[in-house]
Design a protein around this nucleic acid. Sequence first.
DNA 1: GAAACGTGGGG
DNA 2: TCCCCAAGTTT
Length: 355
Amino acid sequence: MQRFFQRLWKWYGNHARNLPWRDTSNPYQIWVSEVILQQTRVAQGIDYYHNFIFTFPDIASLAHAPEEKILKIWQGLGYYSRARNMQAAARLMMDKYGGNFPVRYSEIAELPGVGPYTAAAIASFAFGLPYPAVDGNVKRVVARLFALHEPVQSAAFMQQALALLQELMPGKRAADFNQAMIELGATLCSPRNPACDQCPVAEMCEAHRTGTTDRFPVTRPKKAAVKRYHDYLFLESKGETWLQKRPEMGIWAGLYEFPVHILEYDAGLSPLEIFGNWFYNPGEAVVADRTEFTHLLTHQTIFARFWHLCSDRTNIVEQKNCTRIAMEEIETLPVHRLMHKYLEKKDWRDSTEKQ
DNA sequence: GAAACGTGGGG
DNA sequence: TCCCCAAGTTT
């Protein structure tokens, strides 16, 4: 045990990455970073973290912001309920804690969007409380260190990991302990080809001792991802394009997008079969050719097809939640990745036109 | 407990 | 190209 910590502290002191949220003990900033990092890689989260803190520097500014402004900052990051939960939590903190961050684990864990991991991370990083923060990295490290055979997704695994980590948890330096365990999993104890030769605690690792690091953590087979086939209709006329707001439930809730037809199988429908009811005069309204299929996602396969309307009189049937929006205005609306990418590179439209 | 919920990078 | 999975939480 002594040796374990000597090695761990020395390694962490020398190899900890310099990450923006490690420079602060401000619970608000730590909370923001932890929510952003849920199921999200550090490299992807850093810019979002800076933008978020710059735009909403404290609990009050987040609580009072228009929801669409928060979603706009979150645009492209995914799991958008995180952004809404953060505002709900900020408002709760205004009402219940006078705009201050709660300091007890139980209170932190009650905040919307804050589960066991995030609560422990905030409690330890901001307040030094000795709660083990068990994320995917720590699960992997613990599974190998103690050769835990329970599936990593199971409640049994979590119980065992928690018990072991609580036993290990030092009275002082709870924050460093959690950070170091996470860092170990993130940088050396990787899912495949772990760098055991550089690991400070390899000699105390049961999986390493028995040459079985590649068998841990044990995982259950996972269900195949659901595919979605999207047929998008891109309509533009005189500097305006047609957008609609998605429903408040389900994927991309409340974000904006082009008119779309989504199926979980490829129906092979023609543009008119899909969008015909949008037009009073379908034969005349759709003037551009079907252009290209764009492969957008890997495990959720999405195909996008774009068409143009060049006519002045687009004659679109009224749809609920549909609005004509000027191009400049679109820049301020929260959209999901397809639109996000489109707005980043406006030449998408041009490149499809050339076909 | 299982499914839903995004997106991006690495091997 | 395809599969994995990442500082998880909610329902």
